[in-house]
Write a protein that binds this DNA or RNA. Structure first.
Lengths: 233, 233
DNA sequence: TCCCAGATTTAGGCTAGGTTAATCTTGGGA
DNA sequence: TCCCAAGATTAACCTAGCCTAAATCTGGGA
């Protein structure tokens, strides 16, 4: 016997690996050992060891020296964690007054401790939301996630209107900064310029008067947007 | 480095031991190894091992072959866990529609995962309650617990009025059964009889018409009551 | 007082999950 | 084609917590 109180049947560590691999797969599959190591802040050999255990449990497929891919059951388990994380974040912001920049760490711990029942009760109390406070889609109970067709602000063509749809929840400072600009999920703006050589993007935020704001390239890459129909003169 | 995400600085297992020892101390101190082993469903030698670690961390004082006592810092940590547990139970019943018989296990996991901040937000949202759903007093943030002067129903004199004040949260079946009798914390009743040789206690519950109910000795010992002033003819 | 039953501790082992140091693989550039 | 740097794996080791079996302490009754 071992480890943690189980709410999914997997150890806390296993849950962390699966979620990390799931998230890394959206940026390319198979997922490399080093990518997992970096995401979880763990030494690469530790990842090799865990990957072996995960693949013995049929949660991932491992091709030595190449990387891992989630199996169906691995993906199911990962999506369960993602759902938990996003519902907890939404609950904390909507019902307990947390700011969007401070929910991540709390959710990171709670996602391992809550039961399915509690998650469904939270979801119910929230009216079964589709997106978390950072705009990320919440997987359904049976593991369906909406595919979003988003463009980083850094790639939105100059002259078009766009709406901020999603930001990573990982960096509180970044989130606080974005909020301080008046940017949050759902806000529309016009892209009025972009400097070459990874220069800043300039956007025009609505208001009276409208406010122009320069946004560094790094940050612009983190802001996932919808390009809106109908350009602006 | 090791183990669990920390919200108190102690491992999950350490938190469990401290809380168990705290609760056992209310029934007599020092607390024996075997009592801890039974409470945590762990083999006695494992407890010996952990007790050594706890006393090296100055959380308990251990007298070999005699038992352990919490130190001040051990008691502080234990009370923090008790506060967490009871606030979580209260929150789940009041805000998420849980029944009093189903909150224990959920709280048992969550108490290790919530931050102090979340607990204080929950307490705030509840209006800083003094008692949990089973009538147990909630320690304050700085570790003060109300001393309650209660009598098990099995010891309440025949002929007096009493009010149910507290029931252990551990046995869901017991809690469901009590509720099915119309008994919950705060309900007053008259003790109208008690059979010798660990026989049942009979109580008269208010209502129209009043309902008499026989309660087995074991159960009666688990129901902590206030004896009310003013006897009944 | 002595002895034994029951409680406790020690000894020895196991697993999960982490570490560092050393050894392989792999693929891209000369 | 060859070689080497980067990335992955293996080897060896550590700790927390658990286990069972064996040894040891303690206290109550004859």
């Amino acid at each position: 016997m071992s480890a943690d109180a189980k709410t999914t049947g997997y150890s806390r560590s296993t849950e962390d690996y699966l979620k990390a691999i799931y998230e890394l797969e959206t940026q390319g599959s198979p997922v490399q050992t080093s990518a997992i190591a970096e995401a979880l802040e763990i030494a690469p050999p530790s990842v090799s060891g865990m990957v072996k255990r995960l693949s013995e449990s049929d949660l991932v497929e491992h091709v030595p020296y190449r990387g891992v891919r989630l199996t169906d059951s691995g993906r199911r388990a990962a999506l369960r964690m993602v759902r938990r994380h996003r519902i907890v974040e939404t609950y904390l912001t909507q019902k307990l007054g947390y700011d969007w920049d401070s929910v991540h760490d709390e959710a990171e711990r709670l996602e391992h401790a809550v039961s399915d029942e509690l998650i469904e009760r939270m979801a119910m109390a929230l009216g079964n939301p589709q997106y978390d406070p950072h705009g990320a889609p919440i997987p359904t109970k049976d593991g369906a996630v909406e595919e979003q067709d988003l463009l980083p602000l850094s790639d939105v063509p100059v002259g078009s209107m766009a709406e901020l749809r999603m930001v990573s929840d990982r960096d509180p400072d970044l989130l606080r900064y974005i909020a301080s600009l008046g940017l949050k999920v759902g806000v529309a703006f016009e892209v009025i310029g972009r400097q070459p050589f990874k220069g800043p993007v300039t956007i025009r935020l609505p208001g009276t008067p409208p406010k122009d704001q320069a946004i560094g390239h790094e940050l612009a890459r983190a802001l996932q947007c919808w390009e809106l129909e109908g350009e602006v003169g």
